[in-house]
Design a protein around this nucleic acid. Structure first.
Lengths: 172, 172
DNA sequence: TGCTGATGCTTCAAGTTTGAAGCATCCGGG
DNA sequence: CCCGGATGCTTCAAACTTGAAGCATCAGCA
């Protein structure tokens, strides 16, 4: 932090100091906020349940028909190999079960067991309340703005990078 | 995700639809943005260097005197036990070294070796450029706003929870 | 001086995470 | 029908991560 460095009185001085590298700054703060939130979010979970396990169960809870590993992997943005282990543990605990996919013998449908459904039903509301409480001190306007900006950021990150790079040609 | 929904230009009305649970929504989007950024950030690193190792080296690069594990742990928001392993690996690669602390025999100062300094000197600018490129498509105003909002969010998260209680009581 | 709690670090078990490799299956031509 | 690429999943090695336990040291205090 540094004492105000007044830039030239350009058109519209933002409320806060201009950052020479806004990208890096946003990146660092995003990391930090993420870590702080993560730490608190973990706290609210009952012993023996990890955040990744909770995430998988929360997704499964809204899909009674079950989800394939690939679908889970896309929703949670983790690798497929990762899900194998997480689902293994959920299965070992009797909270989820793998079932054959009706029309694709490669695929596996992961579903919650009744016990899993009961468990997530108890945990989820408490968890949601915990998150809301955590952010209760943040002004509502800030939350709305953050929501909007982060939403746009995600869209940009999902569709933006590939132009010159990796996947797809220029959709431009 | 949805394309822009233009609301009437009433000043008070937020640009986007009100969310019944803005906290959870912010939380989910923050996670998503974080994961997307993380994925890309990893890409830019040379083979054999992981993001945590990079983070530690980047911190050490600006502290020629070295940092203790606890200092590193506070800056990077990871556990102390975690750092043991990361520094072990850096040391094994000849990029960092542990030295006795002058006045506290419990503590250890971690410093970059000359090789480490050379390496981070080459990687860091490229990495910074990569992040900026990644976010180049995001409007500058969005970045400034995000920077500011995330900064305030971090402050709230850091100072908010502890005072009254570990995990929020009903602050209402 | 000696006690006591705090602090710095390491160790450990369990879980998460990735990326690559491998296998089975699917699907769209030829 | 058969083949070659794409897809779904698992396995594996290596690394990260936490939280708890343990040890050495420090700092305040009686």
């Amino acid at each position: 932090m540094r004492t105000a460095v007044r830039k030239s009185p350009s058109r519209r001085a933002p409320a806060a100091a201009e950052s020479p590298r806004p990208g890096v700054s946003v990146w660092l703060r995003l990391m930090k906020a993420h870590n702080l939130l993560l730490r608190e979010a973990r706290r609210g979970l009952p012993a023996g349940m990890t955040l990744p396990q909770f995430d998988v169960m929360a997704q499964l809870a809204r899909e009674p028909l079950g989800l394939t590993s690939v679908q889970l992997s896309r929703r949670l943005l983790v690798s497929a190999g990762n899900l194998t282990g997480i689902v293994d543990r959920l299965e070992r605990e009797g909270l989820a079960r793998r079932a054959a996919h009706a029309s694709d013998r490669r695929a596996t449908l992961v579903r919650l067991t009744p016990a899993g459904r009961r468990r997530i039903g108890r945990i989820l509301p408490r968890h949601v309340r915990g998150i809301e409480d955590l952010l209760a001190e943040v002004p509502r306007a800030d939350l709305q703005a953050l929501r909007e900006l982060l939403g746009r950021l995600c869209v940009t990150l999902e569709t933006g990078p590939p132009p010159g790079r990796r996947i797809l040609k220029e959709v431009r």
